[in-house]
């Protein structure tokens, strides 16, 4: 994606879990890379593996197979010092600020703690000055109003801003935001997204942004890339405007078509993609072939239910894992050799 070495990369990463009902593969052979200042969105429904990817990227979970690299170094082979540097550089913002902020600590204490622990500044007074700076960065102003407050004295949106401020305390280069705005109200959601975009534009912070909402991806990730995940697999990847404007994978199409719009005429006349089944497959008993085939309206029997499609480059830096898309492309690309062709016939069609 970027010519220079990516900040963080996941290289053929898989993660399995043992459950009472057997072993499940939550993430299956996913490769992603995020460059400096990039925005990479991962979108998918529950059980898609997007949160497991986030946790592996944040170093909270070791992959079963594959490697996570930070600035080219394998995260789980680094020295203690390198690991500490990584810990500072990559920060996680959770979905639920109610659960992630300590209720008996003031906002000031919460923001001072990482600063004092990692010692970029010394002393309580310096720590407070830094805490006030952080609050200003996330638009909680004037900071004096917030430093001595407890989490329960803030609104949900304000708490989520504090969580973002804490993530910024150590000048991170990457923030992993896992459904960071899905629990806040619409108008507050936009202002938190705008704050995060400002941090990216002004401080060059990169974002790995995990969400179930393609409309939020369109807004937040417009200048970045998006990966669409379905039961542990990456099924489509590309630049955000491409994927939102013209999704190719049937699952991505279904997601985009399913989202209602805040426009009565548009939303009631929008083309919907009728799936064959509503059920997300059980991770302990995944379907054969393409994992989406039991729900896919374009399914080709004998192909989709037998052979798992690979993520293939379809041009313009875009990748799709779908037999039907691959076939259509072949039909439209006469120069590509097809079985039985003499290698000459293609030119006429062009």
């Amino acid at each position: 994606m970027t010519i220079t070495e990516p900040l963080l990369s996941l290289d053929h990463v898989s993660r399995e879990f043992s459950t009472r009902r057997g072993r499940i593969t939550a993430v299956d052979d996913v490769s992603l890379a995020i460059g400096r200042g990039d925005i990479l969105c991962l979108v998918g429904e529950s059980g898609s593996g997007k949160t497991t990817v986030a946790r592996m990227a944040a170093g909270l979970l070791e992959p079963t197979r594959g490697t996570v690299r930070f600035e080219g170094r394998d995260l789980h082979q680094t020295s203690k010092g390198e690991h500490k540097a990584y810990r500072r550089a990559v920060q996680l913002v959770h979905q639920d600020p109610y659960a992630s902020l300590n209720p008996v600590r003031t906002i000031g204490d919460t923001l001072r703690a990482p600063v004092l622990h990692h010692k970029p500044v010394r002393g309580r007074r310096e720590g407070t000055r830094r805490a006030a700076e952080l609050l200003t960065l996330v638009d909680l102003t004037p900071p004096q109003n917030f430093l001595s407050k407890y989490p329960h004295q803030l609104s949900g949106g304000q708490r989520q801003r504090v969580a973002v401020a804490r993530a910024l305390a150590l000048n991170p280069r990457l923030i992993i935001a896992d459904e960071a705005v899905s629990m806040v109200d619409v108008s507050i959601r936009v202002s938190i997204l705008n704050t995060m975009l400002k941090l990216r534009n002004e401080l060059g912070v990169a974002f790995l942004f995990i969400t179930h909402d393609l409309a939020v991806v369109k807004y937040f990730g417009w200048e970045g890339h998006v990966g669409v995940m379905y039961v542990g697999k990456l099924v489509e990847f590309g630049r955000t405007p491409q994927i939102i404007g013209r999704p190719l994978h049937p699952y991505a199409k279904a997601l985009a078509a399913a989202i209602p719009e805040a426009d009565p005429d548009l939303t009631r006349t929008k083309d919907k993609l009728q799936l064959r089944s509503l059920d997300i497959p059980n991770l302990t008993a995944l379907p054969s072939g393409c994992v989406f085939h039991p729900r896919c309206p374009y399914v080709v029997p004998g192909l989709c239910d037998e052979v798992a499609p690979r993520l293939e480059d379809v041009g313009e830096g875009r990748e799709v894992a779908c037999h039907v898309v691959a076939r259509e492309r072949q039909a439209l690309t006469p120069l590509s050799p097809s079985p039985g062709s003499t290698g000459e016939g293609g030119t006429e069609a062009a």
């Binding site: 108008s187 959601r189 936009v190 409309a215 369109k218 939102i244 404007g245 548009l266």
Partner: peptide, 25 residues
């Protein structure tokens, strides 16, 4: 109006700017 201006649309091939309602309830 403030609520409507804060909802991201999915349709359309252009980027749609949004604004937040300042302050809190």
């Amino acid at each position: 109006v403030g609520l409507l201006n804060a909802v991201p649309p999915i349709a359309g091939e252009e980027f749609t700017p949004l604004t937040a309602i300042p302050g809190s309830p």
